[in-house]
Computed example of a mutant assay.
Amino acid sequence: MVRQMFPAGYERAPLPPAQPEGERTAKVADRSPKPPTRTSGSEQGRGRDPFFDNAKYLTIVLVGLGHAWLPLRSDSRAAEALYYALYTFHMPAFIIISGYLSRSFEARPGQVKRLITGIAIPYLVFEIAFTFFIRAVENPDREFTLLNPGYALWFLVALFIWRLTAPVWNALRWPLPIALAIAAAATTCPGIGNDLNLQRVLQFLPFFVLGMRLRPEHFEMLRRRELKVAAVPIMAAALAFAYWAVPRMNKDWFLRDNAAQDLGVPWWVGVVMTLALFGCALLLTACFFAWVPTHRTWFTTLGAGTICAYLLHVYPIQLSRIYDWYAMPWVDSPTGRIIITVITAVMMTALCTPPVRRAFRWVMEPKLDWAFRRDPVDQARARARG
């Protein structure tokens, strides 16, 4: 009866020959788990790819330069062209890296803890601090709200939302086209409003999803010498096009915080601009990544402090606006613009240094172990490290 349950032609495979007791014991011993081997700190450090730390540092410097150049645009078409070119790719590059580093997010307890302590808590603290700062130096009646992120703090809100949705993008078959469709649809919906800066969250979403889909071999392709050389004329052409576009294009397209109708154009223009800016951003971001050093440099360690620079540079930038530092006579000249650029680069570098990170670790990396359950995966990894 049992044989009738199997298809015709089925025959039970013969049992393997018996093995001597000694051989069986040896094979079982080979399959037993081996004790973890300890690695030195330098060996563990070599597992971290310096390319991404270099890229993070360079992009955060560009973020600071973009904010510092903003008041210089009205006096110089060349400065405006640099602003256009920079805003085409500097935030997309930063977001692509963030997406790439979020590929393994699965909402495990340890990952959720780091999401809350590393993004949500700093946002709450710095949003409150920024509100009191603006009340003290400019507007005593500034409204207190956590739904309208202050200057530059929108990125923490966006990163929190994007990373929470990472398991969804990992599960989809065509995540990037879907993300592009969402971004394009957002440009046609002026009713989305400013709560949590959702326009930017949705319009920048494709870059985060793209970063999640990238693999190490994609970045390896950009390290080829011919691509480094090709990036030079591409960047030069982008600057020339930006110079031509200055009097013809609204800079607010680069900020991605408005719908097309808010910019005075039909809804379908938003769809076209979404795809066009995405393509331009990819091209210039690839050029930028091609130039990022792949070896350890003097600024590699500074890549770990980019969140400090991002959150802290807001205050001197705002002070420069409030007290009109740009009105000083020496600023309105090519030499003055160069000096502003150097000062900003030095400031962003200083804010990435380990002493600044240590000083603000209590708020940017709070432990709060008492508020969270322990993650079994993290505990197992800690035991494996010895």
Rank of each mutant, 00 (worst) to 15 (best):
W291R: 10
V157Q: 01
P20G: 14
G99C: 02
F241D: 09
V346R: 08
V246I: 08
A13E: 14
P354E: 06
C287M: 06
R358L: 06
L205D: 03
P7A: 11
L214N: 15
V28K: 10
I317G: 03
I97Y: 00
M1N: 15
A93M: 01
I119T: 05
V168G: 15
W174D: 11
T37W: 06
L62G: 11
L198H: 04
L275E: 01
E23W: 11
Y315W: 07
M5L: 15
M328K: 11
T37H: 05
F144W: 14
T131F: 00
A185W: 09
A371S: 13
V61W: 06
V63F: 04
I116F: 11
I343T: 08
H295Q: 13
A78P: 02
D141W: 09
P354V: 10
L70I: 01
P355K: 07
N148G: 03
A350E: 03
M5Q: 15
V2F: 15
F208S: 06
R24P: 00
A259I: 03
Y10N: 00
Y151M: 09
W69V: 00
R357I: 12
S102K: 02
C352G: 06
R163P: 04
F360E: 02
G303Q: 11
T341R: 08
K367P: 07
N139I: 12
G41V: 14
A382F: 13
V209R: 12
W291N: 11
P354W: 03
L302N: 07
V346Y: 05
D332N: 07
E220H: 08
P167Q: 09
P293S: 13
T25M: 07
K56A: 13
L351H: 12
V137E: 00
I234Q: 03
A79K: 00
Y100H: 03
S98C: 02
F105P: 00
A81G: 01
L368K: 12
E80I: 00
L72H: 00
V229H: 15
W174Q: 14
A183L: 13
R296M: 07
W162D: 05
I161E: 04
V346G: 08
G110V: 01
G64Q: 06
N197W: 10
F278V: 05
V292Y: 01
Y310G: 04
F126C: 02
V377T: 10
R108A: 06
F289S: 07
T59W: 01
F144N: 10
C189W: 07
V168W: 15
A286P: 07
M1V: 15
P7W: 05
V125F: 12
S74Q: 04
R135N: 02
N250Q: 14
E11W: 04
F299R: 02
S320M: 13
P247C: 08
A68H: 01
L146V: 10
C280F: 08
A237D: 11
P16F: 07
F254M: 13
F372M: 06
V356F: 05
T344Y: 01
P14D: 14
K251D: 06
V137Q: 00
T165L: 15
S74D: 03
T274W: 05
Y151F: 13
